[in-house]
Simulated assay, not measured.
Amino acid sequence: MGLDFSVLGGFWGLLLQGTLWTVAITVLAGVLSYIGGVLFAVVALYAPAVIRWPFRLFEALFMGTPLLLQLFLIYFGLIQIGIDLPAFVAGVIGLGLHFAVYNSELIQAAILAVDKGQTEAARTIGLSRWQALRHVVIPQAVRAVIPPIGNNMIALLKDSALVSVIGVAELTLSAQQAISRTFRPFEFYLAAAVLYYIVNLGMEAVQRRIERRIAASR
């Protein structure tokens, strides 16, 4: 009995491969959640009611149900209607849509906070409503919400462990595979925690750099 970290030696390749999959899922789902957040915010604020209200229902469902259930619905449920997604794709879509809804709420608040006089000024120089939104309002709103969206991305990294339940060989599942061979849960879960923390530190560093560049551009 007791701890034996020497067992990690033969499994670092497996853990690092799982870490790379975790980073890939986080990056792709993060991009999807950012783009989706902007699109969802525009739909929620400016789309006709016939589009806006169904979207509000979609938004409420994603905010009011567990992420794990959403992953099950996307991966196991869609196949019943003929949509068979690979586990990795289903995980990216599930995470991306889940966090896109939360990013949308942030971006909507930021759009509404932009001075309406700027939109009016843009219209007076000949820009259409959409052009004013695209070139004046949305860029300011997005810059304003970079810090909270960055926090959502860190939360996304942590929640990416949930895709292990649909068979994606990310870091958590890689640690579980190693544990099934060695029966040493503490050592491998601790190693996984350290790797998650290292990735988290990298994301925080990128976020701070982006925030500094935005602050310098103002």
Rank of each mutant, 00 (worst) to 15 (best):
V89A: 14
V89M: 12
A90F: 05
A90P: 02
G91W: 03
V92T: 01
V92M: 09
V92H: 08
V92D: 04
G94M: 07
G94L: 07
G94Y: 08
G94I: 01
G94R: 05
G94V: 00
G94K: 06
G94N: 01
G94Q: 03
L95P: 01
L95Q: 02
G96H: 12
L97M: 15
L97F: 15
L97W: 13
F99A: 00
F99I: 01
F99D: 04
A100N: 03
A100Y: 12
A100M: 11
A100C: 09
V101Q: 01
V101E: 00
V101G: 00
Y102M: 13
N103T: 07
N103V: 08
N103K: 12
N103C: 08
N103S: 06
S104D: 02
S104W: 11
E105R: 15
E105L: 14
E105P: 11
E105W: 13
L106G: 03
L106A: 05
L106H: 09
L106M: 10
I107E: 04
I107Y: 13
Q108G: 10
Q108N: 03
A109F: 05
A109S: 14
A110G: 05
A110Y: 00
A110I: 04
A110N: 04
A110K: 11
I111H: 09
L112E: 13
A113W: 15
V114E: 02
V114N: 05
V114G: 09
D115S: 09
D115R: 05
D115C: 00
K116L: 07
K116F: 11
G117T: 00
Q118H: 11
Q118G: 01
T119E: 13
T119P: 13
T119V: 14
E120R: 09
E120P: 02
E120M: 00
A121W: 02
A121Y: 01
A121K: 02
A122W: 06
A122D: 05
A122E: 09
A122C: 04
R123Y: 15
R123E: 15
R123G: 15
T124N: 10
T124F: 11
I125Y: 00
I125E: 02
G126I: 03
G126S: 06
G126N: 05
G126V: 04
G126T: 06
L127A: 01
L127T: 04
S128D: 06
S128C: 10
S128V: 07
S128M: 11
S128G: 13
R129G: 15
R129C: 11
R129M: 14
R129Y: 15
R129W: 15
W130E: 12
Q131F: 08
Q131P: 09
A132Y: 01
A132L: 00
A132G: 14
A132H: 00
A132D: 00
L133K: 03
L133N: 06
L133G: 10
L133S: 08
L133E: 04
R134A: 14
R134Q: 13
R134H: 13
H135T: 14
H135F: 14
H135G: 07
V136N: 11
V136H: 08
V136C: 09
V136A: 10
V136D: 03
V136L: 11
V137C: 06
P139S: 05
A141T: 05
A141H: 08
A141S: 10
V142K: 08
V142C: 11
V142R: 10
R143V: 02
R143Q: 14
R143Y: 07
V145C: 09
V145W: 10
I146A: 04
P147K: 01
P148V: 03
P148F: 03
P148A: 06
P148Q: 04
G150A: 05
G150W: 10
G150P: 03
G150K: 05
